[in-house]
Write a protein that binds this DNA or RNA. Structure first.
Lengths: 342, 342
DNA sequence: TTGAAAGCGTTACCAC
DNA sequence: GTGGTAACGCTTTCAA
């Protein structure tokens, strides 16, 4: 059923019906109540595409999905979904094709120009990220999950990666560890740099020399965690502790230690960063894993919220949130074993 | 820039431009080439909402995201994205709010009636799933990832869960195991029933009595894997083998075994189902995990493909794909230890 | 092979 | 507080 028909059936003009349904203030409350009741009864629902064309609003928030799907994605999306359900705003996932890789910006440009979304979320920013400059220029509202070092002012929400890794490292140093390996994220991403900075800051503060051989970069997979941990443990003197980038990386570290007959939480300490997944919990690992913890799901919810605020008129350059990260000590962060200190 | 403007600039009518850009056959090839070149040069791009209103097509495929985000979701989505990039079709994620839970159908009804999507994917079907009847009735094209037992004919793509679990169980029986625990999925889902059927079929075939105490149901998390495996291992006589529902469940089983000083691949055998994740690989576990394997990402790609075919006119009732599942033997499936057979 | 003009179903401006 | 009507930007007959 279309507006015109429906309006006719209940004996009102399309205009009034439209206003009543969209919550405009000037319509008589009794009229509005009647319209809404009739709409429900007759099953009238505005054609969303007509609404979009008329208003210029898309009713959707865009997220570009990189081809390498990561396990954090669905938790983040669930978080966004939590906030957006009830708002009648959808989440639009734009596939990033293989061939777009070299030309990522083109994808964002198309997204902006096609008016399919009212705003977008940018993930995994790099320093001076060109996507930020582009969206700013195209005037498509956006928020960065993470941060970028750039002249272009932008809304962002980030966790305190620098602080998280600094505190992990400090804690391990306090336990007597001196050779601490850092299993960092992909090179060139802002959060990777922040984590490295936190690591270095902790070392510097305690007067421990930075050894680049103890730092590796890569995706957060069990495979890479294993390979790098294994390689690190083959060094002499070998590290006595690991700061692991993710839960998956930590799984790899556990395996590497076991494969060399080293006991986690005794011979080797580990603190990992945990984004909080319902299906894999640090508490449940054996031994239970000490972590820096921050809910990626909550971040998704808040990002959706902030984006709605920006769409509602809030100044985007004003939106900057740095979330603290909890350090939770469990069984894998222990004093350095005696023999290793000798 | 809008169509009218653009057409004027290059000295053609909007009609011709529209036809040229949409690949209509009646337009002169030279004209088309020129239009496309100019469009690229001047950066003309049709307003997607106007296109949608005019054509009645939404240019998007819908996926309802259940509030409990699972780790398979992003791999499946990546798979779909692989197929849809280049098609100018988006993926629309509709958040399912907490309060929708009791009234899931309402959500699908709204989605269908709002014309925001051309088709939807249904996940986690149950026998007689009411969503299938509803979408059929509303005439919104859809495909089921999984299957449902129902009178309503429907397009589906499923993996052979029954066969997978049957083969795992058979293999373990062949190795001499008699007490085999099944860590199954959430009760009432079709695939859970299929897996149970496969398990029972294998036992029946070998004349081993079915013991309901050896079967548990739950989400695929490490936590539940641990708890159920642990409880199972406390039974006397205890199971000598596990068929685990997922990689995460398997992690829990490993931990349960370790916590009781039982060696996986020696005291206890395990075969898990692996949906193939880039960040957690069965091969890399210690000991390496025997699995039934099927790529959920590939399923996503194929489902997108089939949906495009259906939208292109293929008869949906004709679309039925049952994917075989590979059994890959690694280190965790071993003959039952002697003492246990005594 | 090209063009004029009538939709597509709303919203929002301007009268009343 | 309500209604008439011109946008919104494209596609698609129908005519030439």
């Amino acid at each position: 059923m279309k507006l015109k028909e429906f309006a006719q059936q209940i004996g009102l003009s399309p205009t009034t019906v439209s206003r009543a349904l969209s919550g405009y203030p000037e319509v008589n409350e009794a009229t509005r109540a009647r319209v809404m009741a009739e709409a429900a009864r007759l099953g009238y629902r505005p054609n969303i595409n007509a609404v979009r064309l008329a208003t210029g609003r898309a009713g959707a928030i865009g997220v570009v999905m990189t081809k390498a799907g990561d396990y954090q994605f669905s938790e983040f999306m669930s978080g966004m979904a939590d906030r957006l359900s009830g708002e009648d705003i959808d989440i639009l996932i734009t596939p990033m094709a293989e061939h777009d890789t070299g030309d990522e910006l083109q994808l964002y440009r198309r997204l902006a120009e096609s008016r399919r979304v009212d705003a977008v979320v940018i993930h995994s920013p790099r320093p001076g990220d060109p996507r930020i400059a582009l969206l700013h220029q195209l005037k498509l509202p956006f928020i960065v999950h993470g941060r970028s070092v750039t002249d272009v002012p932008h809304a962002w929400l980030d966790i305190d990666n620098e602080g998280a890794i600094r505190r992990s490292t400090e804690h391990l140093l306090d336990l007597g560890h001196r050779r601490i390996a850092l299993l960092n994220g992909r090179e060139s991403l802002t959060f990777t740099l922040h984590r490295l900075a936190g690591y270095k800051a902790a070392l510097a503060e305690r007067g421990v020399e930075f050894d680049p051989k103890l730092v590796t970069h890569g995706n957060f997979t069990d495979e890479i965690g294993f390979r790098f941990a294994r390689a690190a443990l083959e060094q002499r003197p070998r590290p006595t502790a690991f700061v692991a980038g993710s839960m998956m990386t930590a799984l790899g570290v556990y395996r590497a230690a076991r494969s060399m007959n080293l006991a986690i939480g005794k011979d080797i300490s580990v603190i990992a960063h945990d984004d909080v997944f319902p299906y894999l919990t640090a508490e449940n690992m054996a031994p239970s894993l000490s972590t820096t913890r921050s809910s990626i799901r909550a971040a998704g919810t808040r990002i959706a919220d902030l984006l709605l605020q920006i769409l509602g008129g809030r100044d985007a350059t004003d939106v900057r949130e740095l979330w603290p990260v909890e350090l939770i000590l469990r069984e894998t962060s222990r004093p350095v074993p005696k023999e290793a200190t000798e």
